[in-house]
Lab assay of single mutants.
Amino acid sequence: RNRTTFSTFQLEELEKVFQKTHYPDVYAREQLALRTDLTEARVQVWFQNRRAKWRK
């Protein structure tokens, strides 16, 4: 699988949710996936990576 390149819009949407919660539930991830045209799995992995970055 190739690396996912996120658009500016997608990143803004993802970051917006991350500001509210670092652990969105499955429903929130599904909604975000639909809004950003990503799969729920991509959204989940983005949050994992974003939390790792945030901890540093």
Rank of each mutant, 00 (worst) to 15 (best):
R1I: 14
R1L: 11
R1F: 15
N2V: 05
N2I: 06
R3F: 13
R3G: 13
R3M: 15
T4G: 10
T4P: 15
T4N: 12
T4E: 11
T4F: 14
T5P: 13
T5Y: 06
T5E: 14
T5Q: 05
T5F: 06
F6Q: 08
F6Y: 14
F6W: 10
S7P: 03
S7R: 05
S7M: 05
S7D: 10
S7N: 10
T8N: 11
T8H: 12
T8R: 09
T8F: 10
T8Y: 04
T8P: 14
F9C: 08
F9W: 11
F9P: 06
F9H: 08
F9I: 05
F9E: 12
F9V: 11
F9R: 09
F9N: 08
Q10P: 03
Q10D: 02
L11E: 07
L11W: 06
E12Q: 11
E12A: 09
E12V: 10
E12P: 00
E13W: 05
E13Y: 02
E13D: 00
E13C: 04
E15N: 08
E15K: 04
E15T: 04
E15Y: 00
K16T: 09
K16V: 07
K16S: 14
K16M: 08
K16H: 03
K16E: 05
K16R: 14
K16Y: 05
V17T: 12
F18A: 04
F18N: 03
Q19L: 09
Q19S: 15
Q19Y: 11
Q19H: 07
Q19R: 11
K20T: 09
K20F: 06
K20V: 12
K20A: 10
K20W: 05
K20G: 07
T21P: 01
T21L: 03
T21E: 09
T21M: 03
T21G: 06
H22S: 06
H22E: 05
Y23Q: 01
Y23H: 05
Y23D: 05
Y23L: 01
Y23E: 07
Y23R: 06
Y23V: 03
P24Q: 01
P24T: 01
P24W: 01
P24G: 02
P24F: 00
D25V: 03
D25M: 00
D25L: 01
D25R: 02
D25W: 00
D25F: 03
D25S: 06
D25A: 03
V26P: 11
V26S: 07
V26A: 13
V26L: 09
V26R: 12
V26Y: 07
Y27R: 12
Y27Q: 15
Y27I: 14
A28L: 10
A28P: 01
A28V: 15
A28I: 14
R29I: 03
R29P: 01
R29E: 02
R29A: 04
E30C: 15
E30K: 07
E30Y: 09
Q31H: 03
Q31Y: 04
Q31W: 05
Q31K: 11
Q31V: 06
Q31S: 11
L32F: 08
L32W: 07
A33H: 03
A33M: 07
A33P: 01
A33T: 06
A33N: 01
A33F: 07
A33I: 09
A33L: 02
A33Q: 01
L34H: 10
L34Q: 15
L34M: 14
L34R: 14
L34W: 10
R35H: 12
R35L: 09
R35W: 06
R35K: 15
R35T: 08
R35N: 05
R35P: 00
T36L: 12
T36K: 00
T36M: 05
T36D: 00
T36G: 03
T36I: 12
D37R: 15
D37E: 04
D37G: 12
L38Y: 08
L38S: 13
T39W: 00
T39S: 12
T39N: 07
T39P: 08
E40N: 07
A41C: 04
A41E: 14
A41R: 08
A41W: 09
A41Y: 10
R42S: 15
R42T: 14
R42C: 12
R42A: 15
R42E: 07
V43K: 01
V43R: 01
V43T: 02
V43F: 00
V43S: 00
V43G: 01
V43H: 00
Q44T: 13
Q44W: 09
Q44E: 13
Q44F: 10
V45Q: 14
V45H: 12
V45S: 13
V45A: 12
V45N: 12
V45L: 13
W46L: 01
W46K: 01
W46M: 00
W46A: 00
F47M: 06
F47A: 00
F47T: 03
F47G: 00
F47V: 02
F47Q: 00
Q48I: 07
Q48V: 11
Q48P: 02
Q48L: 09
Q48S: 07
Q48R: 13
N49P: 01
N49M: 15
N49D: 13
R50C: 02
R50Q: 05
R51Y: 02
R51L: 07
R51H: 03
R51A: 03
R51E: 04
R51Q: 04
A52V: 13
A52K: 11
A52M: 14
A52R: 09
A52Q: 07
A52I: 08
A52T: 08
A52W: 07
K53P: 06
K53L: 07
K53T: 15
K53C: 08
K53Q: 10
W54E: 15
W54F: 13
W54Q: 14
W54K: 08
R55G: 13
R55E: 14
R55Q: 10
R55Y: 08
R55W: 08
R55M: 13
R55I: 12
K56F: 11
K56S: 14
K56R: 10
K56M: 03
K56E: 13
